[in-house]
Simulated scan of single mutants.
Amino acid sequence: MSTDTDTRAPSRPSAAPLPANTPGLSEFWRLADTAKTQTEYLANERLHRLADAPFDVLQKILIQYRYFTIFYITDLALLVAKLPFGELRSLLADFLNDELGNGDHDAAHERLYDNFLMSLGLDAQELDRDPNRANLRLLDTLQQRVTSEGPAYAVGLRGMGGECLCQIYLAAMHEHFSKNPAIRERAKDLDWVFWDIHTGEVDIAHREKLKAALHEYVLENPDELPELVRGYVDAKSIFEQFWENIYSDYLGPAAASKRRAATAS
């Protein structure tokens, strides 16, 4: 696998400006809505190619998301441990319980995603093969920041970032790869449970509950709003780099040239 993409973790962006008076919370939700719109555009711009990608390329791209899922579960556990007792901590702990299968490992989301990948014809050994090294470094950066930064920053980075921005990419992935002829041909034999959860009512309900809990958290801790914003802005930057690395490796011009050369030889 090529790892010629930029391996540096993105530099930390400055937090978006907040109003001098403190209807800062409404400004934050405007920022979040803008980031969501930008993310939807970028996700579709990159991932629409999944609809016509060769099946072996599609398999490799879908494997790369597996690492995001694995890191996210650990990061969410670290975030819950960091937060003070309260509604937000309890809610994120509930999300973590869902991710871990509510006491049933076979229902854990990383297991459900592996089931989907293996239903695509991949074996267990292939799932750990050829991770994008630049993305492993990005995921490690996320985890380090959850550990080292304050709770509000970590909530913006992994709470909002994971439940809101990440879900946009998941929805775009699902929309586009589902149109791929190779997937349509195999659709009835695929294990769709992971996608039923992450593109359905469960994730929508999670986002609404999280927004309500965050609203209360900031009302109770208004001084932490800038850190929440900083974490959210950083999450957006890191997610964009994560998908740019995958795009460059498998769908960009250099990847297409390598594929043609391999076919010719």
Rank of each mutant, 00 (worst) to 15 (best):
D189M: 14
E175Q: 15
D196V: 15
W192L: 15
G200Q: 11
I183L: 08
A187Q: 14
L170D: 00
E227D: 15
G200R: 04
E216H: 12
A182F: 09
H176K: 07
V218I: 14
H215D: 13
G162Y: 08
K209F: 02
A205L: 14
H176A: 01
K211E: 15
D196F: 12
I183P: 03
D189T: 14
Y217M: 05
W192S: 12
A182L: 13
D191Q: 08
D223A: 14
F177D: 03
E220M: 11
F177P: 00
T199E: 03
G162A: 10
I204A: 15
T199P: 03
T199S: 04
P226G: 08
A212T: 08
L165W: 13
K188I: 00
V193M: 02
E163Y: 02
I168Y: 12
A172I: 01
W195P: 07
P226Q: 11
V218M: 09
L225W: 00
N221E: 06
L214G: 04
N221C: 05
A172D: 04
W195V: 03
A171Q: 08
I204S: 15
L210I: 08
C164P: 00
M173L: 15
F177R: 05
W192R: 12
L210V: 10
K209P: 01
E208K: 03
E227Q: 14
D196Y: 12
I197T: 07
A182P: 01
G162D: 02
A171P: 01
E208D: 13
D189K: 13
P226V: 02
E185N: 04
Y217D: 01
H215K: 15
R184A: 08
D203P: 05
A213P: 02
G200T: 14
